[in-house]
């Protein structure tokens, strides 16, 4: 299945490598990502600091590696939440139809009518920008896509013979939904979710730009990259390396999504 699918191959390689790096972060770079070193402020790349140092003299490579942990977790968990909520609501709406459907889909419409950003701000104000809250916020504001997809798939699957047969055999609703409908509808959702992971990582970058992202000293790719703004012209490494890290990662996820699309469709 991988053979004639270069996108999937490249994507999986990138993301796989990245996961390994984050997993072995403490062994790759022994320094504490929050270690301030007044003697090493904004040092260009060198053998001791391959990616240079930031405004507090912290090793940039270490921060990017530890930031990968935070940013990838945000991507995965936020999308996990979105997909879970989306599947639950989407399948309920699709399966039961009528009032349940109207209610849930109107809710989704309402959510889609808000600028995402407004919802995020409101929730950030409610909850303070801790890492977990940022995941929850991004997740809870992006379930509408998966929900719509699942609903659509289920609507078309519902009337198919094998479902009718199950029903005739007296299978419970829950069984039909969980064993037959959801697994069959999962394909497009998977593609959507992979894209969603990269969207979540980019969204955190945007939130960091506004000072609403993961708060320092915890490193995230977003808050590492925004330092590039205040060091413009003197520290190209802060502009380039975190930016490339984000770029390559997002590219990786998008390649996977593209590859998956080929397999499914």
């Amino acid at each position: 299945m991988m053979k004639r699918n270069p996108y999937l191959k490249i994507g999986l390689t990138i993301i796989g490598l990245l996961m390994l790096i984050t997993l072995f972060a403490p062994w790759l770079r022994s320094a504490d990502p929050a270690q301030i070193d007044a003697a090493q402020l904004l040092m260009p790349p060198s053998s001791a600091h391959p990616f240079g140092t930031d405004q507090l003299g912290r090793d940039l490579l270490t921060r990017i590696i530890y930031g990968a942990r935070i940013s990838l977790s945000i991507g995965f968990i936020a999308m996990g939440i979105a997909v879970a909520v989306g599947i639950l609501l989407g399948s309920l709406a699709g399966f039961y139809g009528r009032l349940v459907d109207t209610l849930i889909m109107r809710c989704a419409d309402v959510m889609l009518c808000f600028p995402t950003f407004f919802l995020i701000l409101a929730v950030v104000a409610f909850l303070e920008p801790s890492i977990f809250n940022i995941m929850a916020i991004i997740g809870l504001t992006s379930w509408m896509g998966p929900a719509r997809l699942i609903r659509g798939e289920i609507l078309s699957l519902k009337e198919r013979e094998f479902i009718q047969a199950e029903r005739a055999l007296g299978a419970s609703d829950a069984r039909i939904i969980l064993r037959h409908l959801v697994p069959n509808a999962l394909g497009p959702v998977l593609v959507n979710a992979t894209l969603g992971i990269s969207a979540a990582i980019l969204l955190e970058t945007g939130l960091s730009f506004l000072g609403l992202g993961v708060q320092p000293p915890v490193p995230s790719w977003g808050n590492i990259l925004i330092e590039a703004k205040s060091t413009l012209g003197v520290a190209w490494w802060i502009m380039i390396f975190p930016g490339l890290a984000i770029l390559v990662t997002i590219l990786g996820f998008n390649f996977i999504a593209e590859g998956l699309k080929k397999i499914i469709g």
Binding site: L202, T205, M239, G243, L247, I250, L251, F255, E258
Partner: peptide, 19 residues
């Protein structure tokens, strides 16, 4: 074309703007 469009899509707006 695919690669380029993915590439642009992958870049954070403000980063691209500053570059």
């Amino acid at each position: 074309v695919t690669f380029l469009s993915f590439l642009f899509f992958a870049a954070p707006t403000f980063w691209l703007a500053l570059l």
